[in-house]
Computed example of a mutant assay.
Amino acid sequence: MKGFGHPTLILLFLLFFALLPYLPLGIWRAFLLDVGFFVLLFTALALSWDLVARTGQLSLAHGAFFGLGAYGAGLLAPQVGTLPALCLGALAAGAGALVLGWVTLRLHGLYFAMASLAFSEVLRTLALKLPFTGGPIGLPVLPPFGGNWPLAAYYLGFSVLLLATALSLWAERSPFRLAQAATRQSEAVARVLGVQVVRVKLWSLFLGSVVAGLAGGVYGMKTLFLSPYDAFSLARAVEALVIPIFGGLYTTLGPLLGGVALVSLEQALRLWIQEGYLVVYGAILILVILFLPRGLVGVLGRRRG
């Protein structure tokens, strides 16, 4: 997979989304910028999930990290402002990941997946019951920077994607990649080679959770409202999982391509087909998983060959 780094494609991807608000989008401007925002946010979430998956762990807790960051930023923004609230929300997600990791990272495969799913359900239940979260009624959230800059949420989402991309590239090109790969292939062999397996998995989970928490915080400031059913939704974890599989696992380019393709496809099907669009969306996903096991980066690799 290392050969599929394609730094130029990654740079062009980031440059396009940095300049998107200034392109002549015509009457579709508002819609396309909204689609672009969700591409940025959910691609960052997918990169954060892929960072954890490189250790061989199937995490279903990214919905929990997303929700922790969203509620943390939403509750703190009136007191401390936009950027400190986002950072504190991300740290809350990171703290949740450390707790989850300390308890469960000695588990493997489906056992860890089930534990991470239970963690998400516990947090959603707490958000429904605690009075300061707004309970089932939900929590109003202030717009970023008091709503004084219309593009604030968009560029905050872009900043989260930049961070996620930088972390993914670091993990892909640094010696940490070898530790993650050894852990994924065989924990017993990795330990013999001197890899501190639990520390590698815990560090990967923490970094991924911080990015997911930032994404959740920006999401709340964009939508201006949070509910436990949305913020802690299992759909967040599933989307974070599906995008890297669609684009190509254990790469930086794969989730970037998968995020653009899947989020844009979902919005287009929602617009064109409306009712029943999820059937077509699901069928496309199944076909890609069956016939493109290495995702979109596999297609690019064959064309280059």
Rank of each mutant, 00 (worst) to 15 (best):
L11M: 11
L12N: 09
L14G: 11
F16E: 06
F17Y: 13
L19F: 14
P21F: 01
P21E: 03
G26C: 06
I27P: 10
W28Q: 11
A30N: 14
F31P: 03
D34Y: 06
D34Q: 15
G36F: 08
F38H: 12
V39H: 11
L40H: 04
F42T: 11
L45K: 08
W49D: 12
L51K: 00
V52Y: 05
A53E: 03
L60Y: 03
G63C: 04
F65L: 02
F66V: 10
F66Y: 13
L68V: 03
A70Q: 03
A73N: 09
A73E: 13
G74N: 12
Q79N: 08
T82M: 14
T82Y: 11
L86Q: 05
C87R: 00
C87T: 13
L88W: 12
A92P: 05
A93K: 02
G94P: 13
G96V: 01
G101L: 04
W102I: 00
G109D: 15
L110E: 13
Y111M: 12
A113T: 05
A118Q: 01
E121T: 00
E121I: 02
G135N: 02
P136N: 13
W149A: 11
W149N: 11
A153E: 08
G157W: 00
F158Y: 15
S159F: 10
S168K: 12
S174T: 14
L178R: 08
L193Y: 09
Q196T: 05
V197H: 04
V198L: 14
L205Y: 02
S209Y: 00
S209C: 06
A212Q: 02
G220F: 00
M221R: 00
L226A: 10
L226F: 13
S227W: 01
P228W: 05
Y229C: 03
D230K: 01
A231H: 02
F232L: 03
A235K: 06
V242N: 06
P244I: 09
F246S: 09
G247I: 07
Y250G: 05
T251N: 13
L256R: 14
A261H: 06
L269R: 12
R270I: 04
I273H: 14
L285Y: 02
I286N: 00
V288C: 05
V288L: 14
L290A: 10
F291E: 07
F291R: 10
L292Y: 08
P293M: 10
G298M: 11
G305W: 03
